[in-house]
């Protein structure tokens, strides 16, 4: 049954000229992680998933400056400005759209408190991985497009006055995929938190491991857990917030083993991407499969928190972690 390892069906059309900050299908992913996360919004029209996802990510629709866009989850056509005003939460179904990393930091920390660390680390093409364009070239293009050196942003900041270390895995940079530098920055962030006795607050949106870095990506699952293990032994406190989508090697490592795991409503959370599963088992997936609500019901996360309540919740959890 070698089929289990086949991951056919990459359906979303992928473009190399990405649209700034639009969550797009991710090129990365590993095997199980094949996170066509976006595809998951699809329960409504299982008959044509690939076509749907193509629509959803068509340039016209998601072009910045376009006035309207369609909700990934309920299909409602939303006025872009209204969506932005609501913090990228669908006014019709409350689906929480993926937030670009910089927006996430802004939405989480007190104004003016963000001090980024390790921002200079940039991805390495150790395998000299080549497809249509080389990975090295892809890195350069993504750097230019996003103005960021990697998918992981980390540093110090304050949440309602409480100092924390914040790390954000940003889907808009190569699908938030975890390569060597993402793993390294997470580990460095955890170590910073340990040194300064601060809580570690981790946000994720990711398709999983970064294929272009091969087994080195895979080893980041071990590296991030190694750092967390030491942090735990030193009495550190960590909170993971899984946002849409968090899949593959990221879910199967640091995102799932923080002290408290939260999720935003509707977030896709899983190991294998829904398309991989549907292909493997050759049947339709149940409605709501792998959504935050589903994972809560199955006992896999501690709580679902709406975006507007996250700051209060994180501050409260940090207070509890201080003991009585």
């Amino acid at each position: 049954m070698d089929e289990t390892k086949e991951i056919p069906t990459p359906s979303a059309d992928r473009r190399d000229d990405a649209v700034p900050s639009a969550p797009r299908e991710n090129e990365i992913v590993s095997k199980e992680e094949e996170s066509d996360a976006e595809d998951a919004g699809n329960e409504k029209a299982p008959e044509r998933p690939s076509r749907l996802s193509r629509l959803r990510f068509s340039k016209k629709k998601d072009m910045p400056g376009g006035l309207w866009l369609k909700c990934e989850s309920c299909g409602q056509v939303i006025y872009r400005k209204e969506l932005e005003e609501k913090g990228r939460v669908c006014p019709a179904c409350d689906f929480h759209f993926t937030l670009p990393g910089s927006d996430r930091i802004r939405a989480t920390l007190d104004e003016g408190t963000w001090r980024e660390e390790y921002a200079d680390l940039t991805p390495l093409d150790r395998l000299e991985f080549s497809e249509k364009v080389s990975y090295a070239e892809k890195i350069q293009n993504t750097l230019k497009r996003t103005g960021q050196n990697e998918a992981y942003l980390c540093g110090r900041g304050k949440i309602l006055g409480r100092p924390v270390v914040l790390g954000v895995l940003d889907f808009s940079f190569m699908g938030g995929s975890m390569g060597e530098v993402v793993g390294e920055k997470f580990a460095l962030a955890v170590e910073l938190a340990e040194r300064e006795s601060l809580p570690m607050i981790s946000f994720t949106s990711s398709g999983g491991a970064r294929m272009h870095e091969g087994v080195i990506s895979l080893m980041q699952m071990a590296k991030t857990c190694a750092a967390l293990d030491r942090f735990n032994a030193a009495g550190g406190f960590s909170v993971s917030v899984m946002t849409h989508p968090t899949t593959g090697g990221v879910t199967a490592s640091f995102a799932s083993v923080c002290d408290i795991t939260l999720a935003e409503p509707g977030a896709l959370i899983g190991f294998a991407g829904p398309r991989v599963i549907a292909t493997t088992i050759k049947q339709e997936l149940p409605p709501g499969f792998q959504r935050a609500e589903f994972m809560l019901e199955k006992g896999m996360i501690d709580a679902i928190v709406r975006r507007t309540d996250l700051r209060d919740t994180l501050a409260k959890l940090v207070d509890y972690a201080g003991g009585d």
Binding site: T251, A252, S256, G270, A272
Partner: peptide, 8 residues
């Protein structure tokens, strides 16, 4: 596998 938390 997903229901029972493969990733976790």
């Amino acid at each position: 596998a997903e229901e029972r938390g493969q990733a976790m």
